[in-house]
Design a protein around this nucleic acid. Structure first.
Length: 285
DNA sequence: CCTTAATCCTGGAAGC
DNA sequence: TGCTTCCAGGATTAAG
């Protein structure tokens, strides 16, 4: 569910309420979704909330602990104040309600990690350095900050379809099925384009469009397809601006032709076969 | 190398 | 109103 814009939105809404707070208690309902010891943060003051790609992390102020959260397909992190009226999220952690971990802060507010499908998880480390060494160093540059040069270098050394390469978190971190389809449509590149055939100029276009689309999505609070909400419980609004994702069969905004739905890299892919049959695909064929 | 399918799970929607 | 089947924002693994 959550791709870079959604995770960034969660980070921002989370940071607003947790920075400077001390972790008073940690409750774990399902130990199997947690790697490492999340109670390392207990007694720590939260110094920063950081993100790389689709993963976020809470960092202890004195580097005394670090908790990384990956939301997977159905994960959410909610921050609930003690005085929040009408809070609909579960206030106890149980296997049945899928709230796996609750961090209680010194003002009584709670950070609740919920993940029904359990494709996500929590990884705890003793320091920020350990997080990078163990996990984040394996990811490519963040989608908001990757340079055209970096992207082109990554694409040039793989013979996969462009869409498959863009979904690869080791190449660029943060894009998922929604934003890759939107990005390819915006740049008029076909999902099956040979990644290695993408030119420097096309890489520049990809990076520019990537930053624009991701930034606008963040401004809108991310995309809510079904159940995504930020840490404050707010749904996103970017789904109304999708040009192709979820619009298979509907007319292309550019040429009016119905958008086609296929499977690329094992994922449902929506594209305009007219507008996105770009120069790169022609070269490949 | 590459692609596809299966896998980890739950739950909502669609079909009968 | 059931009951069944399919599908989903992710990511890894095995098989071909």
């Amino acid at each position: 569910m959550p791709e870079l814009p959604e995770v960034e939105t969660v980070c921002r809404t989370l940071a607003a309420g947790v920075i400077g707070r001390r972790v008073a208690a940690v409750e774990v309902a399902r130990p199997d979704v947690v790697r490492g010891d999340p109670t390392l943060l207990r007694g720590e003051r939260i110094g920063r909330v950081v993100r790389l790609g689709k993963q976020l992390a809470l960092l202890g102020e004195a580097d005394g602990g670090c908790v990384c959260v990956h939301l997977g397909m159905s994960g959410s992190v909610r921050l609930v104040s003690p005085d929040t009226a009408g809070d609909s999220s579960p206030r106890v952690a149980t296997p049945e309600n899928h709230v796996h971990v609750i961090w209680t802060l010194d003002d009584g507010s709670e950070v609740r990690f919920r993940d029904p499908r359990r494709f996500g998880g929590v990884w705890a480390f003793g320091s920020e350095a350990a997080l990078h060494e163990t996990r984040w160093n394996k990811l490519g540059p963040d989608g908001l900050f990757i340079t055209p040069k970096q992207l082109h270098a990554g694409l040039s050394r793989t013979r996969r379809a462009l869409k498959a390469a863009l979904l690869d978190q080791h190449l660029v971190a943060g894009l998922g099925n929604i934003y890759v389809d939107e990005l390819l449509y915006a740049t008029k590149l076909h999902p099956r384009t040979l990644a290695a055939a993408v030119t420097v100029e096309e890489s520049q276009r990809l990076v520019r469009a990537m930053r624009r689309i991701l930034s606008r999505a963040i401004e809108a609070g991310g995309s809510t397809l079904r159940d995504y909400v930020d840490a404050a419980g707010q749904a996103g609004g970017f789904q109304t601006q999708h040009r192709v994702y979820g619009r298979g069969g509907e007319p292309c905004r550019g040429c009016g032709q119905p958008l086609g739905t296929t499977v690329v890299a094992g994922r449902t892919t929506t594209a305009c076969e007219g507008c996105q049959l770009g120069a790169t695909l022609s070269r490949e064929r």
